[in-house]
Structures are given as C-alpha cells and as structure tokens.
C-alpha cells in the first residue's frame, strides 16, 4: 500500500524535490534519527543546568534595593528571553517556508508557537508578580508590558490560524506571512525601554557596554538562561517530532478514507 506524494496537488509545496543539499537534511526520517541521538543529551544538560542555576540563584545575596525579590529575576528574565527566542525560531521557519520551501520549516514554526506562548505567559505572569512589590502595581499599560502582551496575542493568533486552515501548504504560507509581519514587535519589545518612558528598568544584560549586573546575580541568571534554552530546544525537538507524526497520521487517515470509499456505496 504505497503512499504517493506526487499526485496530490494540495500539499505539493512541501514536497522534497530532487535537489541535493539542504533538501536532504529536510528528510523527516533523517531528522527523526537525529532527534533520537541528541534528545537524551539535551534532557541531561537541561536538568543539570536547572539544578545548578536554581542552587546559585537561591545562594545569591539579597539586592540592596529589591531585597530577596531579586530572585524572581532568575525565572522572569530567562522566560522573556525564550519568549522572544521562540519567535525568532518561528521567523526562521517562516523564511524557510516562503523562500526555500523547506519541508520542516512549517513544522518548526508550528511546534515553537505553543512553547513561545507559554514562555510569554510566564514572562507576563512573573513580571506582574515582581512588579507588585517593586512598582506598587500588578500591571501598567506602558510600552514594554503592552508590546509583550501583544506578543502573546500574536502567538495565540498564529496557533488559531494553523488550526483553522485545514490545507497544510496554504496555512503554512499564511502563517509565515503573519509571523514575518509580527516580527516587527520583537525590536519594539527590546528597545521599548529606551524609546519610551516606562516603569520597566532598561536592559541590564544585553547591553553594548556589557552587563550591568553584579557577578553574584549575573552568573545564576546566565545559567538559568541556558537551562531555559536547553529546555526549549528539548521540547521543541519533541514537539517537532510530534508534529511530523501528526501529519503522517493525517496522511494515513486520508489514504484509509480513500480506500474505503468504493465499498461504502456512496458515489463521490
């Protein structure tokens, strides 16, 4: 029972053509084999980094202004980094869909969206909890917080878009365009604290003149950042593998439905 890939014109934009090079790397079978090899390593690194980062974070001294609430930074900032990092993964995927028509590009974007939404929610929630004792308010409609809320809305909109359009190639192209348009929000988030008057503090790690944090806070933060990065990579690879399986199931179900039609008595 072979499954042809060339006769169905609805999804032919995602086909692997005979081109060598990058197309060969896009083969799902090779990708799944690669995931099997790297995943255990990523899991171990994530657990180790989380353990070290949490230990260093809770060993850090109290900040002279913020007191012990500075420890919220060790989960808030990495969550924000990964919220924006996930979006950049989706931007790469969108370019892969529109420019190179890479077969795994839409899979990568689609798998990153729920993870990015979760990290964005975490950034908003932990930031709000941190803001209450430091700013005296849970929320304010300033540029940083509002642009970050828009990021969450973009993530949710993209997830809804993917789910609402049945035809994979069409949904991939539409989502890719929306992702690229929404990418304008990333520099707005990053530079909003410089461009606008806001309660949020300016950047203290990714600065042109180097980090402004004391080493006691910087090292735990960087290690927690790495831990969140490896957690994202681990979950993203697993989610991509799931997405590939979901599409394989869809293909097989359609094949099964086509084969059952002649015996159903209906005339199509």
């Amino acid at each position: 029972m072979s499954i042809s890939t060339t006769t169905d014109k609805t999804d032919n934009s995602a086909q692997i053509t005979a081109r060598p090079g990058i197309s060969a790397l896009a083969n799902p079978t090779r990708f799944l084999a690669l995931v099997r090899v790297v995943l255990p390593f990523f899991v171990l690194v994530t657990i180790a980094l989380l353990a070290v980062g949490l230990w260093l974070g809770f060993s850090a001294p109290d900040d002279y202004q913020q007191g012990r609430t500075v420890r919220i930074m060790f989960v808030h900032v990495p969550a924000v980094w990964m919220a924006m990092g996930s979006y950049m993964v989706m931007v790469s995927g969108a370019l892969g869909v529109l420019v190179w028509r890479h077969p795994l590009a839409d899979v990568a974007s689609r798998a990153a969206a729920p993870l990015g939404a979760a990290f964005t929610f975490l950034g908003l929630a932990t930031g709000s909890i941190w803001g209450r004792p430091m700013w005296g308010t849970w929320w304010i409609w300033d540029a940083r917080l509002t642009s970050f809320l828009i990021l969450l809305i973009i993530y949710l909109g993209l997830i809804a878009l993917w789910r609402s359009i049945e035809e994979p190639a069409r949904s991939a192209r539409m989502a890719a365009v929306v992702i690229l348009v929404g990418a304008i929000n990333i520099p707005i988030i990053k530079f909003s604290v410089d461009w606008f008057t806001t309660l949020h503090q300016p950047a203290s790690v990714l600065r042109s003149d180097g980090p402004a944090l004391a080493p006691e806070f910087l090292y735990p933060l960087l290690i927690m950042g790495l831990a969140f990065l490896f957690l994202f990579l681990t979950l993203h690879l697993m989610a991509m593998r799931n997405e590939i399986m979901r599409r394989q199931i869809r293909t097989l179900q359609r094949k099964l439905a086509r084969n059952r039609k002649p015996t159903s008595g209906h005339v199509s």
């Binding site: 029972m1 086909q15 799931n242 097989l252």
Partner: peptide
C-alpha cells in the same frame, strides 16, 4: 497519543515508513 495512533494504523497495514519516505512531512 500519536505513537499509539500510528501503531494502530500500521496494524491495519498502513506504513508510516512509507509515509515518511514518500517525500513530504505532510506525507501527502
């Protein structure tokens, strides 16, 4: 869930290996 569904499909004689090797991640 997806592994179980694929195993059920394979039990019916539909191979995901063929779907994967057929050239698309959509398998179409």
């Amino acid at each position: 869930r997806f592994r179980r569904q694929l195993a059920e499909m394979e039990a019916l004689g539909y191979s995901r290996v063929k779907a994967a090797k057929s050239g698309t991640v959509d398998g179409e």
